[in-house]
Each structure stands twice: as structure tokens, then as C-alpha cells.
């Protein structure tokens, strides 16, 4: 499966989805003008991965900031991940960033995926 590798910018996150090496990570800032358009290839990649997924997957979110339009798309990403067996989400937050911790907790209440919380 092809690697999805998007380099982050000032308003879009870095995305690395690499089945072979078992790296699945969204990190940085997410406040694109058109969040639906930006996340479309990500969701498509995850749906394709679902058909041939590794036995277990750890999907990392290491976001510094995201806007509300992105939060809807992050939920869509999580909903796509929810369909995949052996899925686990690692939700990273700065140790003093309560809002990001709470955002992760809220997402974990909206989908049936085990979440692990880590600080960085």
C-alpha cells in the first residue's frame, strides 16, 4: 500500500500513514480553509487500509491546535478508524494543555475505539 505523506504547513498538519512501517500519525496544526477537502485523501487512505489492515494499529494524534471545522473531520477520521479491527488511538497533548486533553476525551466518548493518553 502506498504511503500517504503530507508535509505540514502553517495551517495544515503533517500526516504520515505508512502501513509497512506501522506509522500512522497526524501532527501539528489544523486550520485549513477547506477542511473537508484537506482530509478527503486521508479518509480515503484509511478506508483502503481497512481492507488489508495490519493485525493491530496504533494511530497517533499529536495535534498542537485544530479549529472547529477540523474537529468535525477528525471525528470523521476516527469514525473511519472505528471500522478497523485491532485499532487503538494514542492521543498526545502538551502536559499543560488541558483543552487538548479534554478534546481527546470528548472524541473518545464519541467513538468505540480504545484511547491512550500521552503527554509530550
Amino acid at each position: 500500500m502506498e504511503i500517504l505523506n503530507l508535509k505540514g504547513t502553517e495551517d495544515t498538519p503533517t500526516i504520515l500513514l505508512d502501513k509497512k512501517n506501522g506509522i500512522f500519525e497526524i501532527s501539528g496544526r489544523s486550520l485549513p480553509e477547506d477542511s473537508a477537502e484537506f482530509y478527503k485523501p486521508v479518509i480515503e487512505w484509511i478506508n483502503a487500509y481497512g481492507a488489508e489492515a495490519n493485525p493491530t494499529t496504533e494511530f497517533a494524534f499529536k495535534l498542537e491546535y485544530f479549529n472547529t471545522a477540523s474537529s468535525k473531520l477528525i471525528l470523521d477520521v476516527l469514525s473511519a478508524l472505528e471500522e478497523i479491527k485491532g485499532m487503538k488511538v494514542i492521543w498526545y497533548f502538551h502536559d499543560d494543555d488541558e483543552d487538548m486533553e479534554e478534546a481527546g476525551q470528548e472524541f473518545s466518548e464519541l467513538v468505540e475505539i480504545p484511547f491512550e493518553f500521552k503527554t509530550y
Binding site: E33, D34, S35, A36, T68, A69, S71, K72, L73, L75, E106, E109, L110
Partner: peptide, 20 residues
């Protein structure tokens, strides 16, 4: 309210989630 909107909303043509 936030959780209710995020669960049920679709991104509008203008790209808003109604959550701002």
C-alpha cells in the same frame, strides 16, 4: 452542545461546522 453538534452536523458549503 458541542458534542451534539459535532455528531450531527455536516460541513457546510462555506466550510463551517456550526461550532465556532
Amino acid at each position: 452542545m458541542y458534542k451534539e453538534i459535532i455528531k450531527n452536523t455536516q460541513i457546510s458549503e462555506k466550510g463551517g461546522a456550526g461550532l465556532g
